[in-house]
Write a protein that binds this DNA or RNA. Structure first.
Lengths: 163, 163
DNA sequence: TCAATTTCATTAGCTAGCTATGTAAATTAA
DNA sequence: TTAATTTACATAGCTAGCTAATGAAATTGA
């Protein structure tokens, strides 16, 4: 164990823990994002669902859950709110009566061009002072962490084969 | 912009976003942690508060909020639950009638030796396959992100001067 | 010295996650 | 071809975050 910093900074030990760093980084990013998107009536959580739908409009709720890596009840509740604010429509699948497909409203599609720059802004703020290699390295390392934890996680890592 | 991977993986675009990676990494770690600590009646959220108190027993609720970087109402509610499960005691400060100091119970102090290895296990699982330099780099980059976002965040970065 | 301001904790009420459980449609198997 | 199983969604009830507003003690300042 290197003990170099500890005398300078009494908090170094636990502010250096991966869990602490993840938690604070995630919450700070969420807050920064929501500060910007809330003017358009979109929360940080909703943003994650919308981003997937902008890529794959019309997928089922189950598929959507897998994409955002949230459990089904979380998705159900999130979609109810998105539906209430007129951003998505839910239609029963004609092929399979169990499935409900989720579609973006025109309003939600228009929002994409407004929201994307805001998110870009947050990403740039978050990675300010990092060069291109460092930014790529951060992503790579986080993906590795995700892959490592996927073993005991809910869904297989994407791109997912149907299990 | 390198476009190498995009043709291989249709999800590469948004699964590469910093917000997505942070969110999934944080939630996966929380779940992995809670899977292990729940046997001892401790949630992932409570863990963060306990860890600070193991370092600085007897600090005020406000100070505790700053350390874990959560808002005061979040801390109040978390402490109520910790108090109810017999892990902390809250005593009004004799010096300042507004302050409430938070103390660990003997039970909570004993828990430290049981919980620390579990958390260590999660950290190792999360960073499996990364060498020492990569682990250090991940921490360094996350700290940089935290520092960048601190500007529009709630509390000044630690170690904090009293503001 | 006492009125105004600041600080610390709290409450109320909201969104967002989770697990456990239920229900109906589709699929599998007897 | 009907009974059992699986799949997809929903509901209930919980913890954990947040903002806004309230209350009470301490501090400031006229």
């Amino acid at each position: 164990m290197p003990k170099k910093q500890e005398t300078e900074n009494p908090y170094a030990e636990w502010t250096n823990s991966l869990g602490y760093l993840m938690r604070t980084a995630f919450r700070s990013m969420s807050r920064a994002l929501e500060n910007r998107t809330s003017d358009h009536g979109v929360t940080a959580s909703q943003w994650h669902f919308l981003r997937v739908l902008w890529m794959e409009d019309g997928i089922s709720q189950r598929e959507l859950s897998e994409r955002v890596r949230m459990r089904e009840p979380t998705t159900v509740v999130a979609l109810k709110r998105l539906e209430k604010s007129g951003l998505v429509l839910r239609k029963q699948s004609p092929d399979d009566g169990r499935k409900i497909n989720v579609y973006l409203s025109p309003k939600a599609k228009r929002l994409k061009t407004k929201l994307m720059p805001l998110v870009e802004e947050v990403n740039e703020l978050a990675t300010e002072g990092l060069n291109a290699e460092e930014k790529a390295e951060l992503r790579r390392l986080l993906q590795k962490v995700n892959a490592n934890l996927a073993a005991e996680d809910i869904y297989p890592m994407l791109p997912a084969k149907k299990r």
